[in-house]
Amino acid sequence: MSKWFLFLIPLVLTSAMAAPVELKINLRIGDQPLQFGQTYQTPQGQRYQINMVKFYISEVALVRPDGREVVVDGLVLADFKRDAPTQGVSVMRMEVPPGEYRGIRFNVGVPRELNHLDATTQQMPLGINSGMFWAWNPGYIFYRLEGTALLPDGNQGWVIHMGTDSFRLPVRIHDLQTRRVRIHIPPSGGTITLNLDLAAAFQPGPGGAFLDWSRPELRQLHGLSPQTRLIMSVVYFNMSNAFSLAQ
C-alpha cells in the first residue's frame, strides 16, 4: 500500500462524520398553515392577507448538548412564492456531524461584513437582483412581509421591511437545561423543520401597542420615523419569538 493512501483516511473520516441536513420551514398563522390570499384576523380584529414572505437566514449553528456549537457556513434567501407551497419548504442544505443536538440558532438578516459591500458586485442571493437591497440606506432588507389589510373603508396594502444592523433578528431555539428541544441527526442525514408563525408579528406589545393598519403611517414599516419606531420594535421582538421547532 502506498503512503499516499494515508492522506485519504482523514478525508474519508471527515466525509463519514458529516451528515446532510436540510432546513425546512412551515409558514403558519397561529397553528394553521399559511395560505397566500386567505383572510386572517389580528387580535385587534383587523382582517388581513399575506402576499409576500422573504427573508435572509445566516450565521446558522447547531447547539450540542454541552453548549458548544457546530457552525454552518452560508447565507440563504428564503423566498416563499405566492403560488408555491408554504409547508416544508427547503431553504438551506448543510453538512453537520451526526448526533444529538439541543437546538439551532441563526440570524434573520445579512451579516454586517456582507451588508455594506457594493451591491452591484454581489451575486445572488445578495446583490441588486435579490430585490432585497435597500437603496436609500445601504444594506439589505433582512425580511419582507407584505400583504393587504381589509379595512372597513377599503383594502390597503401594507409592508414590513426590517433592516439595518441594529434590527438583525437573532433566533435562538435551544434549551440545554430542560431538554425540551431535541434534534437528532442520524449518520444518513436528516431534516430540521421550523415553524414560522407570521401572526406573531401582529401581537400587541407593551402598553397594548399594535400594528394598526387604519393608520396610514403604519402601513409602511421600514424606518425609524417617530410614528413607526414603537411598532417597529414591537414587530421586531414579536418576530424573534415567531420561530419554533416543528414537532
Binding site: 457594493d118 437591497f133 437603496a135 445601504p138
Partner: peptide, 9 residues
C-alpha cells in the same frame, strides 16, 4: 446611496 446604479433600485 453611493452610486446611481444602486439608487435606481
Amino acid at each position: 446611496s453611493t452610486r446611481l446604479e444602486l439608487q435606481a433600485v
